[in-house]
Design a protein around this nucleic acid. Structure first.
Length: 275
DNA sequence: CACGAGACCTGTTCGC
DNA sequence: TGCGAACAGGTCTCGT
């Protein structure tokens, strides 16, 4: 479930109290259960258990697709990968077989990392930059200007789609939002990054931001059995819409495979070969 | 440097 | 109904 809007939505839900759950900020971690120790990249499982005990959550933020839980001395970093979810639950609540990593809180609540496919990752580090240093810019930040996108596109000689999904180029885009952004920009995913004209670069910049903002407005997308909450899946223009009419021109959306990922395009709005 | 294939995992859905 | 294949929001590593 996790691209930038879904991860951001989860961060907000953890940071802020709701009628159902307390805020994570201010809570003290008193223990950890590691049902799938391979989730932990660093330090060792034993090191994580020892170091995290007693630390209080000071803030919850996001960088790219990473969730950053600021503690007194360290930062707990979680990457949800394909199937992860991070949420608060009362200690008494029954846990599913996929609630592998559980942080026990002094309040009696638990921070649970549920991850059926077990691809997710957990870090506990003093310097978060050791994990985040390779990430590209935040596409929704103030500083992300058309000029910066132009530089990124020009630095490489790659197809647009794999470049946009490269977290070192731009942080936060995944398979869904890349397709949605390219459709908004009316660009084919296989266009060479260095072949775009000024108007196309501006259109791509707008497309990226508007696709992400739309996702955020709907609290992200909930597709499979994973994730709850969001309903952006009901507003996809091309992703998963093979055989359906393009909402812009009515042409039938087609599916192809690019970089081993399903890719959805409108052949009319995003022509290939004719430009 | 750019790209494709394979690995890492489990669950759901689709076709026969 | 049953069973295997295909597929899933991500990233890493290896070979060309």
């Amino acid at each position: 479930m996790p691209e930038l809007p879904e991860v951001e939505t989860i961060c907000r839900s953890l940071r802020d109290a709701t009628e159902a759950t307390p805020p994570l900020v201010g809570q003290q971690i008193i223990g950890v259960r590691l049902g799938w120790p391979r989730h932990v990249v660093e330090p060792s499982a034993a090191g994580l258990r020892r170091r995290i005990r007693g630390q209080i959550v000071r803030d919850v933020n996001r960088r790219g697709k990473f969730i950053l839980v600021s503690l007194d001395r360290d930062t707990l970093i979680v990457h949800l990968m394909m199937s992860g979810d991070l949420f608060l639950a009362p200690a008494g609540t029954r846990r599913t077989p996929h609630d592998h990593t559980i942080f026990r809180l002094a309040s009696g609540w638990q921070l649970r990392f549920r991850d059926p496919r077990k691809f997710g990752r957990v870090f506990l580090v003093a310097d978060r930059e050791t994990v985040l240093e390779r990430l590209g810019p935040e596409p929704l930040s103030e500083g992300f200007r058309v000029k910066q996108l132009e530089l990124i596109l020009g630095r490489h000689k790659r197809a647009l789609k794999p470049l946009l999904m490269d977290q070192a180029a731009i942080a936060g885009l995944g398979n869904i939002y890349t397709d949605e952004a390219l459709h908004r920009a009316r660009l084919h995913p296989l266009r060479g990054s260095q072949t775009l004209g000024p108007l196309e670069i501006r259109a791509l910049w707008k497309g990226i931001r508007s696709a992400l903002r739309a996702g955020l407005r709907h609290n992200g997308a909930s597709i499979d059995w994973v994730y709850r909450g969001g309903d952006f899946q009901n507003h996809f223009r091309v992703y998963g819409q093979e055989g359906e009419p393009c909402p812009v021109c009515g042409t039938t959306i087609v599916r192809s495979v690019i970089g081993q990922r399903s890719t959805f395009t409108c052949p009319n709005c995003q022509p290939w070969g004719k430009n």
